[in-house]
Write a protein that binds this DNA or RNA. Structure first.
Lengths: 223, 223
DNA sequence: ACATTTTTTTAGACAAGCCTAAATCATATA
DNA sequence: TATATGATTTAGGCTTGTCTAAAAAAATGT
């Protein structure tokens, strides 16, 4: 996955936001206004982004995002909105001050940083403006994440994170075949000790204890 | 006050750090190694920084910071070290992981951000490596720090920083029970090889070689 | 003290991102 | 439907920060 420059990221996020305003394509001029850059420069950049297959670009017509472009944009927006939460919740900025600062912070790429920040903030679902925060797969789910513990029998979902990232825990997960992104279906629950039987990727049955299930977060599938 | 590009800031911080290692000028090659850039490019940049009167630059001779350059460098270092504190204290990174990330974060300029961050972190005086954090006027708190090597027998102090932050060294320190903030009393010194016997936290005796003692900085207790 | 080696600088090139000015396309209207 | 108007693209140029290759200066060794 090639990495994008701050400028490219800015365009991508801007295009996403403009399109999310309802339309399905954006004009060069609209982008130009939004990124505060002359239309000629925007044309240049659009050519480059089209080259990289992040946008669909037809001259004199308009721009939309490719699937890849959309995913990238959502990752950038995720960083942006998490920083906004940080600025408001922790540093006591007001919600109308944070956009500018978040525009700088969003380009800091270290992936572990974003995950830790997310965790530190308590996995917020919405930014201070009420906009939803995409998950780390670039999914904009309004669907809540819940602990595997809490998933009812018969429900399935995707494993999206773990709270305990000790080597021992990760090794254990690996051994039993559980990984971030895996599909998980809860087959059975034992009231007595809270342990569960899972069906991973429609393939493999796994038993997990209550402790383990309490350290795994799941995004529910529409059931 | 003209604002500097991330690249310029990097050079400035690097030059400050190299000079702080004791010398009073730095060579092009040393800078080149530290910023991971060819010497030719460094020459270009030095010319530019000299133009802006941030460094004193004599061709083929070496570089030092002007008063203004030093102040700028300390502001950058302030940001850098505050972010390091954030990463370790709040996001639970370990102290040897944070430098790279802080190098990105340090270039985010919003001045209010830095002040709020400082406040949020409780106005820390030292970063996770024990290096002092300049105040917002670019002043370093001036309690004297000396090398453990130089501490006389019978004197005690607090370990405030290490010069070598390689994983190997940090692991070694951990093993023998030395850490940033530990109280250390010098029990004995061997003239022959410069090794020392230490008493850590009034609890544990430790032998260290001259090499090790030369990489540890101590703030003396008023004796 | 001179030759060799190392360090540093200069010269020339290139990519990224921006700009202005001019050309081209799309469209709204008379 | 011809044309004026506005949107968009192209052409050409600038700055920043990098590079390689070659020249110049400094340091080193014999």
């Amino acid at each position: 996955m090639i990495s994008l420059s701050p400028a490219e990221e800015n365009y991508l996020r801007t295009i996403y936001n403009l399109i999310a305003e309802g339309l399905e394509k954006v004009s060069t001029n609209e982008i130009s206004a939004a990124v505060n850059t002359k239309a000629a420069s925007v044309s240049d950049m659009l050519k480059k982004l089209a080259e990289k297959e992040l946008i669909d670009y037809r001259k004199y017509y308009g721009v939309s995002l490719t699937e890849e472009g959309r995913k990238r944009a959502l990752h950038i927006i995720r960083r942006h909105r998490l920083w906004e939460v940080f600025l408001v919740d922790k540093l006591k900025f007001s919600w109308d001050e944070v956009n500018v600062i978040a525009e700088e912070l969003e380009h800091v790429k270290a992936p572990l940083l974003v995950r830790r920040l997310d965790e530190y903030l308590g996995f917020p679902k919405f930014d201070p403006h009420g906009d939803p925060i995409p998950d780390e797969f670039g999914e904009l789910s309004s669907k809540p994440r819940i602990l595997l513990q809490e998933v009812p029998v018969g429900q399935s979902g995707k494993i999206v994170s773990v709270s305990d990232s000790s080597a021992a825990f990760l090794k254990y997960l690996d051994k039993v075949g559980i990984y971030i992104g895996a599909k998980v279906l809860v087959l059975e629950k034992t009231d007595y000790d809270g342990s569960q039987e899972l069906f991973i990727d429609n393939q493999k049955k796994v038993f997990v204890s209550k402790e383990v299930a309490g350290n795994i977060q799941v995004m529910l599938h529409p059931s």
